[in-house]
Design a protein around this nucleic acid. Structure first.
Lengths: 335, 335
DNA sequence: GATTTATAGTTTAACGTTTTACCAAACGAC
DNA sequence: GTCGTTTGGTAAAACGTTAAACTATAAATC
């Protein structure tokens, strides 16, 4: 049904190449006059370039892949940001939901790639969780296709998109608790190899040091950024006698909320809780969650930009990193 | 880097056509022996068919588009289901995030389509919300590309994927409240033109009738399935003196939770609330939300299947519809 | 005014598939 | 032993772009 480049060429009285030139903004090669003629003809014929034909020769699809592990509120927002930025730069996003269940992900990934994806981004949590995905990631890098992993550094090969100052975020949260008089502050972190976790922990230590409180490693419980982490860690924390808990993300904090009900304890009377991320849920709770707000969508945009720059071999412009901000709500109290 | 069909053909000692035949499962045309030879050669050369070349001639991309309006927990899950089913059937999903802000969506959609998408699904809430998206939807249908709208019926042209018996769901919720002794039951619905809303309301009426309670239209507040609906509707409901509220989705219920705090009232002591959908949040709340559980992901799968059947002109097999189930938690109480 | 150099185009050959039509051999049927 | 028919396979022409190399003017340089 669609008209072809030749139709436009004929109508405009020029060659197909010229039309192509116009549509690819190689305007230096074509005069304003002919450009106008071409555009008019194209509009009249309702012409849009056929991506398949173009891709066939350029070997660029202008499609990037996002390999998502499990979908949650946070990652959904990140992916939203990726999409937006990609679209802005003329790319589409294909999302490969790595299935939770089976082991044929690797094969799937291969096919996925051989469909002509220009690059891949592995959002938070995709890579670290599962060995076969990690393998898949390695094989992608080996195959030479541009790839970005978020929040995890792999072999130093891949730049790690982030764009948010999590050291500062961790510092903010901890300082807040200290200001409220807490000195025994538990931490429930994400996996150790997550940069976000490592950074937040740095910030935590920094705030402690500033206040002259010695760092006690036994107060750090390594979780996995999921609700269950909070539930599991709570008994341990209570055993340690902490008066406040810094959950490294809001999901963990929710887990604490949930688990705490079983102990007949309440927030913030019996224990203060601060989260991280500020997923929308935070202020819907009966006891609105004090947390660190970060621009989740921007983190996705950041990653997309970095990847596309990589694809197009542009010098990756140093992007500004965003400042986290403390949202004091009701889940923390003065001692 | 990639090897071509000709490489494989040469290695296997057959023609390119034969290789193509093998890879497209037109096995009737090729003997088992040659098929094996071809597969071996392909494996050795690590051959994958070039999708662009194929699409160029077949005019099928095996990509479907999902035009998402705003992303929320519910729609994220639906889209997850769409992706899974699509993948199962050999399709990839491209997600077009219609921007919340500007009016150039239509133009974007056009480009999006002219990239060779095989079909489009408009998930819940995409179409109804915004006029220009609705226009875009119309223009897509006019252009003859297979399209499915979820939850909204447009001109009867598009089949409306759903796969869930919402009349029954509405009935279940209402009956539960009636059994608990409530007779003055408020409803906060979604937009009027959503089938899901209409059906749930049918179920509501049915349960009322069964119990001999007259239907009072003034007890129905038309919302928009968002948190704000719940907040806005609460004063109205309180004014009406209802003892229970049936929120047509969990987000609305959350809005009630939030708003109720300002009145110093508590759930379920002062008012019973039942939701719908059972998004994961329901049991994280301090007062776990009684709600109607539905298989959200399956709804997405359902839609994808319907669309792909449409694309491939298969007779759309009548899919089983799923039964909603009542989850009694803590937000409703006996009067 | 001859020579270089921009400027604005064009011609032609890929790119890697699928599809249409055609063919040869083998096989029965009569 | 000639005539359909099935079986397994091939050659060649699309599909709609872009890229490389080339050309014909016009302008600039000396």
């Amino acid at each position: 049904m669609g008209s072809t480049i030749k139709d436009v060429a004929k109508k405009a009285g020029v060659s197909a190449t010229t039309v192509s030139l116009v549509f690819n903004n190689r305007e230096s090669r074509v005069s304003e006059a002919t450009k106008a003629k071409v555009m008019d003809a194209a509009r009249e014929l309702n012409y849009y370039p056929n991506r398949f034909a173009a891709s066939l020769v350029t070997k660029h699809s202008h499609i990037i892949g996002v390999v998502s592990g499990s979908v949650n509120i946070f990652s959904a927002q990140v992916i939203g940001g990726i999409s937006k930025q990609a679209r802005l730069m003329g790319y589409q996003v294909i999302q490969a939901n790595a299935s939770q269940d089976d082991a044929n992900d690797l094969e799937y990934l291969k096919i996925f790639l051989n469909q002509g994806i220009d690059g891949v981004v592995f959002p938070h949590s995709t890579v670290s969780n599962r060995q076969n995905l990690r393998d898949g990631f390695q094989s992608i890098i080996n195959s030479g296709i541009p790839a970005i992993a978020m929040d995890v550094e792999i072999d130093g090969v891949v730049s790690c998109a982030d764009g948010c100052d999590h050291v500062y975020g961790g510092y903010l949260a901890t300082r807040h608790l200290i200001e409220y008089g807490h000195r025994k502050i538990g931490v429930i972190s994400g996996p150790k190899d997550y940069l976000s976790s490592a950074k937040r922990l740095d910030g935590y230590c920094k705030a402690l040091e500033e206040a002259g409180i010695p760092f006690d490693p036994s107060l750090v419980y390594v979780g996995n950024y999921k609700l269950e982490s909070g539930q599991e860690a709570l008994p341990y924390m209570l055993g340690k006698g902490v008066t406040a808990i810094f959950a490294f993300n809001d999901m963990i904090a929710l887990g604490i909320y949930k688990a705490l009900r079983n102990y007949g304890m309440s927030i913030p009377k019996d224990i203060s809780v601060i989260g991280y991320d500020d997923i929308f849920i935070s202020d819907v709770l009966e006891v609105p969650l004090t947390t660190i707000h970060i621009p989740i969508e921007d983190i996705g945009r950041h990653a997309a930009k970095e990847l596309i720059d990589l694809i197009e071999k542009k010098a990756p412009v140093e992007l500004e990193t965003h400042e986290p901000v403390l949202m004091v709500r009701a889940s923390t109290r003065r001692l």
